[in-house]
Simulated assay, not measured.
Amino acid sequence: MDWFNNFWSIYSNLVLSLGTNALLALSIYLTLACGMLSIANAAFMGIGAYTSALLTMNYGAPFPAVLAAGMAAPALMAFIIGKPTLRLSGVYLAMATLAFGEVVRIALLNAESITGGALGLNGIPQLTQWWHVALALVLTLALLWRLRRSRVGRAFESIKEDETAAGLMGIDVGAYKMLAFVLGAAIAGLAGALNAHLTFFIGPGEYGFDRAVDILTMAILGGISNLTGPVIGAVILTLLPELLRAFKDFRGVVNGFILVLIVLFLPKGIWDPARFRQWFGKRGGRI
């Protein structure tokens, strides 16, 4: 077991980051599954991270309560901003949620007495264990799988295909979009709370535009036709920089080139069951 102990001491943070990034990819999968292009998930992650870290550092709150608060705070914020922003769609919704993300980042930057400003929060207790991340991911996948197969999931799919037609069929489009937006924010906040108690330090720069694009890329890269795609996308996007360390200064270039190739040749994502069925069907026909 010495080899495992050595591996875990070196790569434990990376392995646990796979889980938190998978949660982030699933959080934006929810809004995409409802036909909404929201780029606020990085901001929701930041709200969850700061809320949980402050409760731990200033009040010594128990970890389960901290995680619950890390989910509740961004969910409440999503409900508040969802009223005006979810009336928008497409690129206009993306711009509105992107602006919200910048507002959150600047607020964290300027509230120095609470958030530490540009210096962030240091010395956050490392309370996140591997089973916390594993349990959170399993429960989230189970919830979303059940949601997909329920009346709510069918309503999400209808809204995604044609919002007007869904409304004419009696589906409360506004309520379902709000549900997806709030639930996605809660999952992003959970990822932020777990990550904050894993890395010892958080700062406003971690929850800006770059992180928002990374979260969106994870879901699109893996594919949003089912729950497997976002998880695969998160794993690939997390591991690629580590696997490309040999390229040193050119690592970012090679990383971007690989992602471009995947998007060009696999436009529906890496995990596309329809493509697999078609491919295996052709092989079966030949046989």
Rank of each mutant, 00 (worst) to 15 (best):
139 L>P: 06
132 H>N: 15
100 F>E: 01
136 A>S: 15
95 M>D: 02
175 A>V: 11
132 H>S: 10
137 L>I: 04
187 I>H: 10
171 I>F: 11
87 R>Y: 03
173 V>K: 01
164 T>Q: 13
81 I>H: 02
80 I>N: 00
186 A>P: 14
71 M>H: 05
129 Q>G: 14
153 G>F: 06
192 G>F: 14
71 M>W: 07
135 L>Y: 07
144 L>Q: 13
83 K>E: 05
113 S>N: 13
123 G>A: 10
123 G>I: 08
99 A>N: 03
153 G>C: 04
121 L>C: 04
197 H>A: 06
136 A>T: 07
116 G>K: 03
74 P>R: 01
159 I>P: 00
133 V>Y: 13
179 L>N: 01
159 I>V: 09
129 Q>Y: 10
190 L>S: 07
105 R>I: 03
190 L>F: 08
190 L>C: 10
117 G>W: 02
110 N>T: 13
145 W>Y: 14
123 G>Q: 10
114 I>F: 13
105 R>H: 06
78 A>F: 09
199 T>L: 15
147 L>I: 06
104 V>K: 01
147 L>W: 09
68 A>W: 05
77 M>H: 01
174 G>F: 12
115 T>W: 04
195 N>R: 13
163 E>S: 13
176 Y>I: 14
179 L>R: 09
145 W>C: 02
172 D>C: 05
78 A>N: 05
153 G>A: 03
138 V>I: 15
98 L>C: 04
159 I>F: 03
119 L>W: 08
197 H>C: 03
168 L>E: 06
181 F>P: 01
200 F>K: 04
127 L>I: 05
95 M>L: 15
162 D>V: 04
114 I>M: 10
71 M>T: 02
164 T>D: 11
183 L>G: 04
130 W>T: 03
174 G>A: 14
76 L>H: 00
148 R>W: 10
139 L>Q: 02
139 L>M: 12
147 L>R: 00
182 V>A: 13
190 L>M: 14
120 G>P: 05
101 G>I: 03
95 M>E: 01
197 H>Y: 12
